[in-house]
């Protein structure tokens, strides 16, 4: 029913995609494609790869819509994850470990405190509070890994610490975050 697709929430629209509803699919595309593509572009830093990741994410949305269970999490989180995983896959396949693909410092560090904008996000408060419990450089690792898609070795180069240190900081930070977020 194209007429009311625009009035449905995202979870309902995804469920309609599971029922092969093209109007629901286009509504989701209109609403989310710029955000998915923005995330893919940030991770791949390559317009062609970003477009491929966005393409694949929406194809997966259509094919795997029945896998989405609204009880387990936000629709937006599920949609964004589709694009992130595809972008990360494409970057891994291209070989992000190769020399010469240096992290773009200017993008990584834009703004005095990128975390401040989390406070503006409707549900970002809890995450912001929990990230604040981490030491600044470890918090930065988590944010850079998630937003920029940096590998352990890229993070190690950026922070000038050994890869093993990056791995152990990330794991300990995640364990701390889990405790904070689950409480």
């Amino acid at each position: 029913m194209p007429a009311d697709a625009a009035s449905l929430n995202d979870a309902d629209l995804i469920l309609r995609c599971a029922g092969q509803d093209r109007a629901a699919f286009r509504t989701l595309y209109a609403k989310w494609s710029a955000r998915l593509h923005g995330v893919a572009l940030r991770i791949t830093r390559d317009p062609a790869l970003a477009a491929d990741a966005t393409h694949d994410a929406f194809v997966q949305l259509w094919q795997q819509a029945a896998r989405y269970d609204p009880k387990l999490g936000e629709a937006g989180a599920w949609l964004m994850s589709l694009a992130r995983y595809r972008a990360l896959d494409l970057v891994r396949r291209r070989g992000r470990e190769r020399l010469g693909h240096e992290p773009a410092q200017d993008q990584a560090d834009q703004g005095p405190d990128p975390l401040a904008s989390l406070l503006a996000a409707a549900d970002g408060g809890a995450l912001h509070r929990c990230l604040e419990t981490l030491q600044p450089e470890r918090r930065r690792l988590i944010v850079l890994a998630f937003v920029e898609g940096y590998s352990h070795s890229q993070l190690a180069a950026l922070l000038a610490v050994p890869v093993g240190t990056v791995k152990s900081w990330i794991r300990r930070s995640l364990i701390g975050l889990k405790e904070c977020l689950a409480s």
Partner: peptide, 15 residues
């Protein structure tokens, strides 16, 4: 779900 707010740090770019 919990890390989703971090996606807001990437500016939307229309495909």
């Amino acid at each position: 779900d919990r890390l989703f707010p971090l996606t807001a740090l990437a500016a939307p770019v229309p495909p």
